[in-house]
Amino acid sequence: MLGLNPGKQLRELNRLIGVQFQATSIQKKMKVKEALDLFSSFYKGKTQKDQLIDMLGLGEKLNVHFEDLSGGWKQRVTLALATLHKPELLFLDEPSMGLDPHARREMWEMIRTLRGHGSTIVVTTHYMEEAEKLCDRVAMIYSGELKALNTPDALLDDVATHYLAFDSERMSYEYLLTLSDVVRVEKEKGDFKVFSENLQHTAYQIFTYCHDENIELKNFKFERGSLDDLFVQYLEKEKTG
């Protein structure tokens, strides 16, 4: 890793990497300021402590004990501790776990800024949306096996994740299944999802059918599946063999 052997040169390696663990804490009674000072002293040379305080808005919390911070602020502090020394490689384990939607977006913004500074960042997450929005490359790992590795765009281009979505009261589920390109149809009350190998042709068939049968279609959309769908698809492929 980074030209070093983790077994033999762990200390040298630890100077170059940063790790933000999931749900670990620092000493409860330690002030934010003290934690930043202490961790700065572990590294040679000047750290980017002051820039991080600005960037993460930690200024107002410097004298607060770690145990009195909210979840979002704790994550910011531990993110700061992991990045003080401008690590070349930064590991973030579920960085937005337990954050409210607003705090999560802010966390993403910070991670993007850090990426902009030139660090390679490895993020572990259960939120597919997070992977999709944040990452240049996504690896899907299930029960210890690598299932997919590519850019989010390339992963999303995978055929089976594309579908047509529409609402209709009277649309026939059975008819949709008879169409030649259709792979799978999901129906929940009046909401349909039609997975097809040829979306345009299937759309044409559906529209013709509805026109002839005088069936009303609402909210017709060409949908690109999310990484969520892709993940489920890999799992199902696995189950069916």
């Binding site: 749900a23 670990t24 531990t78």
Partner: peptide
Amino acid sequence: GYRETGVLRRYQSTPLQ
């Protein structure tokens, strides 16, 4: 307590001996 709450583990990922 530090072992349980991950304080020591965090130290372990720094150059601190």
